[in-house]
């Protein structure tokens, strides 16, 4: 038979195993009942098989979320590896759903599975995209809100990879602040 180059035979292993979650807002159900684990993967090829198969974020009904987290970490503040952490939050305006959302989400996924945050990749827990009528949100979750150098490096790298211009700032909020916030949003601990 034809000789296949070995590179195309083996699947390329990822540093981490990742799980994709889906949340659909069904008000007459418990919050956690609306959160579903789709599947987990640990190779490049299995990532693409999943990504190419599921609905694009921009096509999800309002109220839905996708979350990609390291396997074993649940996409919620309460999880052991999230509770001391926080998130870089990117608020999208309404027209960005058609222009940027899918690109931003895919680029974020490539950063996660490719371990693009170098020595700070271990601080990464996962990422979430929230589809909302009032404006979609993309966030990158880290496990420790008290590590400024890791958080700032991760935030700058995220902006660079998403080609977000310098003049547009993004903020980092600790989950604890978000949980106990009085106003509409928690105050930013960091901005880049």
């Amino acid at each position: 038979g034809a000789m296949m180059a070995p590179d195309s035979l083996i699947k390329h292993p990822l540093q981490n195993r990742w799980a994709l979650w889906f949340f659909k807002n069904d008000r007459n159900k418990e919050w956690t009942a609306n959160l579903k684990l789709i599947t987990a993967f640990d190779t490049v090829e299995d990532f693409w098989a999943l990504y190419n198969h599921v609905q694009k974020a921009s096509k999800l009904p309002s109220g839905c979320d996708y979350s990609l987290f390291k396997d074993g970490v649940q996409p919620m503040w309460e999880d052991e590896r999230n509770k001391d952490g926080g998130r870089w939050l990117i608020n999208l305006n309404k027209n960005q759903r058609m222009t940027d959302l899918d690109n931003f989400w895919l680029e974020t996924l490539l950063c996660l599975i490719g371990e693009s945050f170098e020595e700070y990749s271990e601080d990464i827990c996962g990422a979430v995209v929230n589809i909302r009528n009032k404006g979609d949100k993309l966030s990158l979750w880290t496990k420790e809100a008290g590590r400024p150098d890791a958080i700032l490096k991760i935030g700058r790298k995220l902006k660079e990879r998403l080609s977000i211009p310098a003049k547009i700032q993004i903020g980092f909020q600790s989950h604890r602040d978000t949980m106990t916030k009085t106003g509409s949003t928690a105050k930013d601990r960091f901005r880049v």
Binding site: E45, L110, E115
Partner: peptide, 18 residues
């Protein structure tokens, strides 16, 4: 220990491999 990194170019190239 050794770390497995992939840059976006490589990952995108793998998108449509069989």
């Amino acid at each position: 220990g050794t770390k497995i990194f992939y840059d976006r170019h490589f990952l995108l190239k793998c998108r449509n491999s069989p």
